[in-house]
Nucleic acid binder design. Structure first.
Lengths: 142, 142
DNA sequence: TCTTTTCATTATCATTTGATAATAAAAAGA
DNA sequence: TCTTTTTATTATCAAATGATAATGAAAAGA
């Protein structure tokens, strides 16, 4: 197995991952949230609270555009904003209860698809999957 | 390891894959091609020739919008078009030499990043990676 | 033949996203 | 204090994408 062939496999694999995750988060379409806004909400799920600057960095968006999308999310009641008392220039954003429940719905649907995929697999197979995830994460995907 | 925890790992893993591939195809920014147009070119790389309908299906784009983007790619000289003699309603699209070389550049850069990642890994480790790719592809990502 | 269906294209319009300049407020530093 | 830097926001404008109606040409079917 030369590097070239392995690279081709990695490309094909990444393509599969994209396809499946795109399919899994298909449920977002029903919600009143654009793809960029969804990425912001997803980021807020794992890092709360966050400032506009942090979001801009991690979601790869300019600060003015981040500010605009955050305003829209506030208007939709999906997140909350509060000043940072330690540095009053900074604004701290969190998911609102509505935002939490929206993301909960989306993830529940994704997890349901996942459960279907792994239904009927043995304990050993699941452990092999876990090992494979960690191996690829460490060695290939950063 | 319960299903819930494994699902979390899959989500985190997918996120890593997205991040790394996004970084790898960063070179596209320098080329005069939009993200949607890039997806079409990438699809044409693996399936040539293709009709607008097939592209529309696989790239998740309406047929009129597919037609518009194909026209732009033709204007940029990145693909070629020919009627299907067996069914003259159908149009067959292929990458042009310029399109081929563009995709070649992008993939060469991505492969370079990949080579850096796997530099210094032993033959056994590479084989384990290959096995992990196939396992996850078969069991989790479709 | 005549009608219907399929495939592709053009033309619009609305929305989303990206890029940039200008402004304001708070903090940091001279 | 006064100046500079950082953080966030608003306001515009351009470009990309999504959605839909209308049209034409070829194929399929009655």
């Amino acid at each position: 197995m030369d590097h070239n062939a392995l690279f081709q496999k990695v490309v094909a694999f990444a393509s599969s991952v994209h396809e499946v995750t795109h399919e899994m988060t298909r449920g977002v379409k029903n919600e009143d949230v654009t793809p960029v806004q969804y990425k912001i909400l997803e980021y807020m799920m794992f890092a709360q609270p966050v400032t506009p600057s942090e979001i801009a960095d991690c979601v790869d968006l300019s600060l003015p555009n981040t500010s605009r999308e955050l305003r829209k999310l506030l208007e939709k009641g999906l997140c909350k904003k509060a000043v940072d008392d330690a540095d009053r220039r900074r604004q701290l954003f969190r998911l609102s209860p509505d935002g939490q429940s929206l993301m909960g719905r989306v993830f529940a649907q994704a997890q349901q698809g996942f459960e279907q995929q792994i239904a009927g697999l043995s304990k050993e197979e699941l452990e092999k999957i876990e090992g494979a995830l960690e191996l690829l994460r460490a060695k290939v995907f950063k």
